[in-house]
Structure formats: C-alpha cells, structure tokens
Amino acid sequence: MKRILYWLHRAFGAFDPPLLALLVMMALLGLTVMHSAVGGTDWRFADQSRNFLIALVVMWAIAMTPPPVLMKMAPYFYGLGVLLLLGVEFFGETSKGATRWLDLGVVRIQPSEMLKIAAPMMLAWYFHRNQGRLRVVDFLVAGVLLAVPFGLIVLQPDLGTALLVFATGFFVIYFGGLSFRLLIPLTIAIVIGLGTLVYYEKDICQPDVDWVVLHDYQKFRVCTLLDPSSDPLGKGFHTIQSMIAVGSGGIYGKGYMKGTQTHLDFIPERTTDFIFAVYAEEFGLYGGIMMLVLYLLIIARGLTIAMRAHTQFGRLMAGSMAMMFFAYVFVNVGMVTGILPVVGVPLPFMSYGGTALMTLGIASGLLMSIGHYRPVRH
C-alpha cells in the first residue's frame, strides 16, 4: 500500500496545481469554441479532444523528467532538430509552395516544430555551462546557435514558425544577461523601418517591386496589412472578414453558436489560425478580455516558476517557455485583428492541430518539471 501511495504521489506530484488548473480551463474553453467553430461534434472536434489527451500525457511525461536529465539531452535534441531541418531542405515534401515536411517512412514530421523547444533548450544549456564568465563572444555564439535553425526555417519558407523559434531563443539570450542598451539601436532601426514602410506603401507594394528578403506571398501579406481593401476578395479577404467578425461581436457578443460570420462560412481557417475571430464574435469584448486574462495568468505562473528555479538552466528555460505563450498569443491576436500580417501562427489551446498542442504540452511539462525540482544537496 505504501508503495502504491508513493508512486501516486510521485506521479501526481509532478503537476503544478495552479498551472494545471489554468491549463484545464483553457482546454475546456478551447473545446467549447471548437465545438462552435465546426458547428457540432464532427471528426475535427473528436480529433481535437484526442489531441488534448495526447498533449496531457506528453506534459505529464516531461513533468516527471528532472531538469538535469533534460539539460543533458539539450545538445542532442538541438543537433537532431538541425539535422532534420537539413533533411527537409534536401529531401522534404512540398505542399502549397512550401517545403516543411519530412517523410521518414513510418511517420511524416514537421521538424521546425521541434526547434521551438530545442533552440531555447540548447541556449539555456549553453548559458548554464558558461554562467559567471559570460563574454561578448558567448552572446555571439548564442546568436549563431539561434540563427542556424531560424535561417533554415525561413528557407522552407515558414516565416511564422521561424519568428516563434527566434522569439523563444531571443528570450533565453536576453534573460541570460544581454544588456538592454544593446537593444536600443535595434528598436530604433525597427521603428524607422516600419515608418518608411508605411510612408512609401503605395510605391513599394507595386507588383513589379522585388523586396529581395521576402517571398512574393510574404510581401503581399505585409502590403495587405497596410491596405486590406487593395485586394478584398484575394489576399485581403482573411483580414477583412476576421476584423468584421471581431467588430460585430461588440461588447457582449452574439451568443454561443450564434456567430453569423462563422456559421455562414465567411471566416476562413476558422478552426485554426482565425479561431479568435470565432470566439470574439460570439463572446464579445468581455469574453476576449477573460480569455486574455487566462493567458496572462499562465504566463505569470511560468515567470514565477522561472524566478523560483534552482538552476540557471531552469530559470532561462522556464522564462523562455512562459514568453513563448506570450509570443503565440500576441502574434495570433494581432494578425486576426489586423495589426500584424498573417503569418500562420495558431492560438494556444484554441486552434485545431495536434502538432501545436504537442509543442504546448512539452512547454507546459518543462515548466512543471522545473517548478517542482529540488536539487539534492550533499
């Protein structure tokens, strides 16, 4: 009996109760909105329910793994991810103009998803190994470690995933000790670049103008963001319809399963990238605020775990995972409301998709593993 109680305590003791409660609320909310988005309990709703169960099991398995073990795995996990990205570059399968998938015979995978976890893990491992003696060259090495997967993912092309990988890795570098003063020139350059883009929008968005650093479809997404009405039935359709749905929800929303934009099929990709438009139309401003508060509580809990972590690896990894949730929400809500270009970033625990939920499950498991870990003192 004592042995059974011991194993039950060990199994359920791996969960962080506050974080688990918030995640369960988000999962229930996500399934509720998915039920409305698909108009009932069809195969997509059933698949998403299964995806949540798989993500829960993965989260529990990672939560049971001590951070020192995870830290030892970091270089191998990162190396495997980069190797698979190179495999995509040379042997990947192309779909809808992008080469993002790799067929391994028994399974078809998207290696770029791995790097959302592998890149920050590698950087956290690197800074842990060099803590107390960091030099400028160490930050340059960290920049290269991040630039390699970022560049390979951009080549696929998959700008949305590349930006998320860059964001999670950058947060590790920043939390690792990067001076805020070094970010001031970068911030100034971004502001000047955005100002120039807005001012010369009519000239640089002409079809014959090549942006060099971006593919044509990415250029059109940025130009559509600046003026969705320039192509209302083409590139601007997603943005215009999602903004109409969000605006029509008003303060209180139209009510559950009563969203006209949703159920008359005006919202494209309503189960994936644009599910926030479905939610905002039916639950309104108050519902949107409630959802954002839930996300903020998850992020706050992750940052609390980071501050209480007992190792440098744990602090950096937990901080990065918490901020990854922020990046997901900020980019998705921004593109649905028309303040950011459409880059194909899902809304955490809401958008349909097993791969994204798996990544979020691993991230949540990492937070729980770091949160309950207590190093043995000799």
Rank of each mutant, 00 (worst) to 15 (best):
M1K: 12
Y6P: 10
L8I: 06
A11L: 10
F15N: 01
D16N: 07
A21Q: 08
L22R: 04
M25I: 15
A27M: 10
L31V: 03
V38N: 08
G39C: 00
A46W: 02
R50V: 09
I54D: 14
I54K: 12
A55V: 07
V58W: 05
W60Q: 12
A63G: 03
P66Y: 04
V69I: 12
A74R: 04
P75L: 03
G79V: 04
G79C: 04
G87M: 00
V88L: 00
G97I: 01
R100Y: 08
R100K: 09
L102P: 02
R108C: 02
L115S: 12
M121Y: 07
N130K: 15
R135D: 11
G151W: 04
L164H: 13
L164N: 14
A167C: 05
I173W: 06
F175G: 12
G177M: 01
L178K: 13
L182A: 15
I184E: 06
A189R: 11
A189G: 14
I190R: 08
V191K: 05
G193V: 06
G193H: 15
T196V: 14
Y199G: 04
E201R: 15
D208A: 10
W211R: 06
V213S: 00
L225C: 03
D231Q: 02
P232H: 02
L233Y: 10
G236A: 01
M243K: 09
Y252L: 11
K254N: 10
G259S: 13
I267R: 03
T271H: 08
T272C: 00
A277W: 01
E282D: 07
F283G: 12
L292N: 10
M307A: 13
R308D: 12
G314C: 02
M317V: 05
S320T: 02
F326L: 01
F330G: 01
V331C: 01
N332E: 05
M335W: 01
G344K: 05
F349I: 08
G361C: 03
